[in-house]
Amino acid sequence: MDLYLSLIRIGASLMLTFVAFSQSYRINKNANSYLATLFGVLTILFISTDVGEYISEKWIWLYAINILENNTILIPSFLYIAVYHFVHAPANFLKKHYLLFLPFLFVAIFETFSIWAETHSLALEDFIDTLDFIFLIGLWIFSLIVFYWVVKMLANHHKNVLKFHANTQGVDLNWLYKLMFIFPIYFIPQVVFYFISNQYYLTNISDITLFFMLFYSGFHIVQQREIFDLTMQGKVLAEKEIPEQIDVEKEGLIDEHLMLEIVNNLEKVMKEDKPYLNKNLSLNLLADKLNSRTHILSYVINSHYNINFYNYINNFRFDYCKALLKNPKKQHLSIEGIALEGGFGSKSTFNTLFKKQSGMTPTQYKNTNNQ
């Protein structure tokens, strides 16, 4: 049974490595490349763990296996770098990112020293065990700190993405955010392993959690959209740096007359062209349609309507879908069909927003108005 579990987790992680790598040719190039590297590290870890007992006892092989098994510490590092490139596209690898690999370097040096001491029959077992424990605690602390940084980065991204996208499905990285809270279910048993001898049940918990994490990740990796359109990246990044609360009038970028002109053009476009029916509508696309700049349009929507771009667009979608639900000629449409026709990316997003706006589900609203 252990052999089958080993083959399944090696196969699953290897499959995800290729899926993420193939996605890097399509969207979010750098981020998916580092995500593929992360799954590659997991694959190597599983292979080294599962086949280590069959490897020759020669110290060079033992050393290699020990190093590979300790590459667990690379998981937080590559996770941070992947998420960084998701939320800062098209960012480059920064020099400070090399610091994330220092713990692995320390582990490699420590393993080299441990194997050397063992092969030379040096009586340093107690000293090495103490160092091993200190390193282990340090690595756990390092992992927790990195996971905290990742969660914070994803939370900030979720706020920022509402300024640029009306449909956040596939770009808000909520799946990664949720994954951060599943990671402890996998890592906590690893911590407990160190202190107990009977690891059977804890191993099962870790394996089941790991399988869920792998397949959950795979599903969402293939559902991704380009977070920032490559053709608009320079414009987006330049304008993202302008704080939302900036006093644009004092900066001389817009006056009251220009604001009213943009508002009139915006309302005309929304009424006649209905751009909100495009589920991939972004602030950049709408600004281009109005021949305006992204941060100017964002300022106009925030100040004139007192809501962000995400809520502004979805209010139109909500009203449009309400009309469809009441329209006798549209009763053949399912709730999902109405959601998609109204510009929503999914039925679940539509249901959540509709209930928040009206206090009832779309189905309840439809039944109430068509009795």
Rank of each mutant, 00 (worst) to 15 (best):
T72F: 13
E125D: 13
V87Y: 04
P76I: 06
I141F: 09
F106Q: 03
H88Y: 13
Y98E: 10
I115Q: 05
L139S: 11
I65T: 12
S143A: 11
G138V: 06
F78L: 07
D129T: 07
I115C: 00
F147S: 13
P90I: 01
L62V: 02
I134G: 01
E53W: 01
N92W: 06
K58D: 03
A82C: 15
E57G: 00
L131T: 08
I60Q: 05
I128N: 05
V83S: 08
L122E: 09
H85S: 14
E69C: 10
A108Y: 00
L131E: 10
F104K: 15
P90G: 13
N160D: 15
I47H: 08
K95L: 09
S77Q: 13
A64E: 00
F113N: 12
I128L: 15
L139Q: 09
K159V: 13
F127W: 06
W59Y: 11
V51W: 15
M153L: 11
L122R: 06
V151K: 07
G52W: 00
T130E: 07
S56N: 04
Y98M: 07
L79D: 05
H120G: 02
I128T: 09
I137E: 05
I128D: 01
L144Q: 11
N160G: 14
H120W: 03
L144M: 09
I134D: 03
W61T: 01
F133C: 09
D132A: 08
H120P: 02
V83Y: 00
K159H: 14
S56I: 00
A64H: 01
I141L: 13
E125H: 09
K152P: 01
I65V: 13
P103K: 03
K58I: 05
F86Q: 15
K152I: 08
Y63V: 02
L74C: 08
V107H: 03
L139F: 05
P90M: 02
L139M: 09
L105H: 03
G52N: 02
F110V: 08
H85D: 10
I141N: 05
I141Y: 05
K58E: 03
N66T: 06
A155R: 14
D132Q: 08
Y80E: 09
A82N: 06
I73N: 05
A155D: 15
S143D: 02
V151N: 02
A155T: 14
A155M: 14
F46T: 02
I137W: 12
Y98D: 03
